[in-house]
Design a protein around this nucleic acid. Structure first.
Length: 909
DNA sequence: GCAAGGTC
């Protein structure tokens, strides 16, 4: 067919591909074939777009085609500081289970000239459209790309959409991209942080195996939890208050009427008694007002997802999650319309009568359907509108008649019945009632009674879930007087509000914009799955200890991370992006910057979380392993890798250091004096160090290990400006590579060059804590040691026989001497070494043998000043292991030549 | 192992 173009059409789900294909082809010459994905078939037919003959291929995806994830090196929980997740690179990719769909799209796109996107017309749909565009355009750069805009699967609308194609809207898609990225970064960072902080520190008895417990955080799940906790606290904090009220009854031939005091109740007993005694003294009642009024009780609006969930919970105590599962199955089998819809008004184009007609044969509600269709009954009424329309799906309604199918569970029957009865109710007249209100006066106090007679039941006949209580009261006339049958002063107490029911919770979420119609039930289920909340047999939610502790912890910090505001603000920003008022990048930058600061602050205040947990849980004895990042407090951004953060940590030997959380990719580290007893990052920022912020650290030194004149408490900066800290490091040495006995005042003045290095700090990075030679940014260089073996406490002190520098205590890692300690000169220029046990035995030092040492006794030279000057010594002296493999004398963990890996302070990070 | 959002 000359001039015919091939058009690839893609819908968001298979059912839409099928429906639209059926409408466009008018079911004429419609062919179907399988794609690579078993769910997403391909429909083929011919069509003409504005006179252009087209061969149409119509397939679908199943929701999002792509996922957003961190790049691999950030995906493991201990791969980085959770703070890094605010700027770690992310990527979009097609997950394994969607690859078949991707391949279908690629294959079909290659042979098409046009791509028409039939994704749902909402923000998520637009984002999925761009996912499809990316996949298709990657294999066919010449594709003409158009968007079909439709709001219902109705013939006229679909043909109109096809003839009036528009451009896809990148702003809508951008809003979703921003939402995804923010959700991922916030969720992952807080989840890792609180899980690693709390899981191993407490015996969390709610979980079967708390080692695998994940204490997840998400803007939706925590807001949902917040509603539960807030109501629970309200209930807990309620203090019953006694009140008094006066009740009056009257009996006549027609029956009994109960009159309520129009003041309601009084909390002041004396006042109540005074009023009551006045009434008792003059008890005659005079009727002051009789009012008759017609009242209407309207049927519900057309059914959307949230109402379906709420009503199923209220009427049948069915969980929202189960409701959606059953509804999905009914939808898949064609009995009800699409169950995930916000829309609660029918389009004027919907043939409502046809839907009712289908139900006429049902044994239970068929006769009601017949009455509805009979104009003489006057029962029909065009349905009201709840004011919501997602422009993508109609309200939930029956699409196929059934009296119950083989294989349906009771829940399938119940839910189908609800959908049908709800629909029939929507198109029915409201119930009509006559209400009578009577007011009386006793000694100047007013009382009222009311009664109701239902005149027409109308929709209530089919909507049996609702009732409208009728109550009769006797006939009264104004001016009539009577003596009350009873006049009592009654007492009662105020009651707390009830715990939130599932329907209440859904209402709270809906009102605050937490989740979507398709996901709200997931968030509720997540609270149960994470052991954050429980649900009782009345569908009422209480927080567990865990849920309450988490909310309490954040609340004590003063954060509203558990309130819906965060999501609302995000939602506002998303809206701004979707209408083009703000750019995606702008919103991402602002939001993530704020959340990062919030995360940082939350971590500084983590003690609040720990305290809140301690209220409910026993401390655990379990060893905490691999939790350095959770324990580490951020001091500044790493100026070496520029990606991760420098965090204050304690090494295994108990000494403090500030290291890059990007380890081992980045080995930036600042070693702090071993004489530090306590160190904690504060929220104070150094005013002189750049790039900032550099947070000051509150140090507490062991007084006896620092010279007179220095204060044991010091608010210090590791950014390079802090002379006091520099001096203390110089005087005390660092605690990183030596055992405690290596600490103490040293003979640094004996080595002018070394002393000079320290005073000047590192020439590469300007930081204290290491010398220029030690700078992690200069790893190929040899380094001087900062450790000292001279001591004042009687421990051996060994100096290099060549240069006189204090030696470093190391541990051999060779086959013959593994674990044996020896001293060696920190300078790479000298080869001096001596076994530790040799020192105590009074042996002389010896130099490291030139080759094949294996730390054996060979190559002994003995005597000071004779160490291997005759040997050309490279920075990396090679040892040979027992297996003959060369072993570097640098630590294989951090590359530091002053120690071996078995004593590496960074091991196990 | 982490979010929330689509959908099967």
């Amino acid at each position: 067919m000359s001039g015919t173009i091939k058009v690839l059409n893609v819908a968001e789900k298979p059912s839409v591909a099928k429906s639209v294909s059926g409408i466009l082809s008018r079911n004429q010459a419609l062919r179907v074939r399988d794609g690579r994905s078993r769910y997403n078939r391909i429909f083929e037919f011919n069509y003409s777009i504005r006179g252009q003959p087209c061969h149409m291929l119509f397939t679908s995806v199943t929701g999002h085609l792509m996922e957003l994830e961190f790049e691999d090196r950030f995906r493991k929980w201990h791969s980085c500081d959770p703070l890094d997740l605010y700027h770690a690179p992310v990527r979009k990719f097609v997950p394994e289970d969607k690859l078949d769909i991707k391949r279908t799209l690629e294959e079909e796109a290659r042979r098409c000239q046009w791509l028409v996107l039939w994704l749902d017309c909402d923000r998520e749909g637009e984002n999925i459209a761009f996912e499809v565009i990316n996949v298709c355009r990657a294999v066919n750069r010449h594709l003409t790309i158009r968007r079909a805009r439709f709001s219902a699967l109705i013939d006229r609308e679909i043909h109109h959409a096809m003839q009036n194609l528009i451009d896809p809207n990148p702003w809508f898609s951008d809003a979703v991209d921003a939402r995804q990225e923010i959700d991922l970064r916030i969720g992952a960072s807080f989840t890792r942080f609180q899980t690693m902080l709390l899981r191993d520190k407490f015996v969390i008895d709610s979980a079967t195996d708390d080692r695998n417990l994940v204490l997840s955080y998400g803007p939706c799940q925590f807001a949902t939890l917040g509603f539960v906790v807030e109501r629970y606290w309200e209930v807990q904090s309620h203090e019953p208050e006694e009140f008094w009220t006066i009740n009056c009854s009257h009996r006549s031939d027609e029956g009994v009427a109960t009159f309520n005091w129009m003041r309601g109740h009084l909390f002041d007993y004396t006042c109540a008694v005074i009023v009551y005694e006045m009434c008792v003294q003059e008890p005659t009642a005079t009727v002051t007002k009789v009012q008759h009024k017609e009242k209407l009780k309207y049927p519900p609006y057309p059914l959307n997802t949230i109402e379906l969930e709420k009503r199923a919970s209220r009427y049948f105590r069915m969980s929202s999650e189960h409701t959606m599962k059953v509804a999905e199955e009914l939808y898949q089998a064609g009995f009800i319309s699409y169950p995930r819809t916000e829309t609660d008004c029918f389009s004027s184009r919907t043939d409502l009568h046809a839907i009712v007609q289908e139900q006429q044969g049902h044994p239970d509600w068929g006769s009601y359907a017949q009455r509805l269709l009979d104009p003489e009954t006057g029962l029909w009424r065009n349905p009201g509108s709840g004011g919501h329309d997602d422009k993508a799906h109609p309200p939930i309604h029956p699409t196929k008649f059934s009296t119950g199918e083989h294989g349906w569970s009771q829940d399938h029957r119940t839910l189908y019945e609800l959908v049908v009865r709800h629909f029939l109710a929507c198109v029915s007249q409201p119930a009509v009632g006559a209400e009578t209100t009577v007011e009386i006066d006793i000694a100047g106090e007013l009382f009222s009674a009311s009664g109701r007679v239902i005149l027409e039941r109308n929709y209530l006949d089919v909507y049996r879930y609702e009732s409208w209580g009728g109550s009769m009261i006797p006939t009264y006339t104004v001016g009539q007087q009577f003596a009350p049958a009873s006049l009592t002063l009654d007492t009662g107490v105020t009651r707390p509000p009830p715990l939130l029911s599932e329907a209440d919770l859904l209402s709270c979420m809906d009102k605050a914009g937490i989740g979507t119609d398709a996901t709200m039930h997931d968030h509720i289920k997540k609270l149960l799955d994470r052991f954050y909340a429980t649900k009782d047999s009345n569908t009422r939610f209480s927080p567990t200890n865990l849920g309450e502790a988490l909310v309490m912890g954040y609340d004590d910090m003063g954060y509203e991370l558990w309130k819906p505001n965060l999501r609302s603000m995000m939602e506002f920003d998303m809206k701004e992006v979707s209408v083009g008022n703000k750019s995606k990048d702008e919103v991402l930058a602002t939001c993530l910057q704020q959340m990062k600061a919030c995360f940082f602050d939350a971590r500084l205040n983590k003690v609040k979380l720990l305290e809140a947990m301690a209220v409910f849980f026993e401390r655990s004895n379990r060893a905490v392993g691999g939790d350095n990042y959770a324990a580490g407090e951020v001091v500044r951004q790493c100026d070496l890798c520029q990606e991760s953060s420098m965090v204050l940590k304690k090494n295994r030997d108990g000494n403090f250091m500030v290291g890059c959380s990007g380890f081992p990719q980045c080995r930036n580290a600042i070693w702090l004096p071993g004489s530090i007893l306590e160190a904690a990052v504060t929220s104070n920022i150094c005013s002189s160090c750049n790039p900032g912020p550099v947070y000051l650290i509150q140090f507490k030194f062991l007084q006896i290990e620092i010279p007179p004149g220095f204060n044991a408490n010091h608010l210090g900066c590791i950014g390079g400006c802090d002379d006091t800290l520099r001096q203390l490091i110089e005087i005390c040495g660092t605690g990183s590579r030596m055992s405690a006995r290596g600490r103490g005042p040293t003979t640094t003045s004996s080595n002018g060059q070394r002393s000079s290095n320290r005073h000047n700090g590192c020439v590469h990075c300007q930081q204290t804590g290491h010398s220029s030679n030690d700078c992690p940014s200069q790893f190929s260089r040899s380094r001087n040691s900062q450790s000292h073996t001279h001591s004042e406490n009687g421990d051996p002190s060994v100096s290099c026989s060549t240069c006189g520098m204090p030696c470093v205590l190391r541990t051999a890692n060779t086959a013959n001497n593994r674990g044996r300690k020896f001293y060696s000169c920190p300078s790479q220029e000298c080869n001096f070494f001596i076994w530790e046990d040799g020192v105590s035995n009074g042996n002389d030092g010896r130099s490291i043998p030139s080759t094949n040492c294996s730390a054996s006794n060979s190559g002994r030279r003995g005597g000071r000043g004779q160490s291997g000057r005759n040997r050309s010594h490279a920075a990396d002296t090679t040892f040979v292991s027992a297996t003959g493999d060369p072993v570097s004398n640098r630590c294989y963990v951090c590359g530091d030549p002053s120690h071996f890996a078995n004593v590496c302070p960074n091991r196990g990070m």
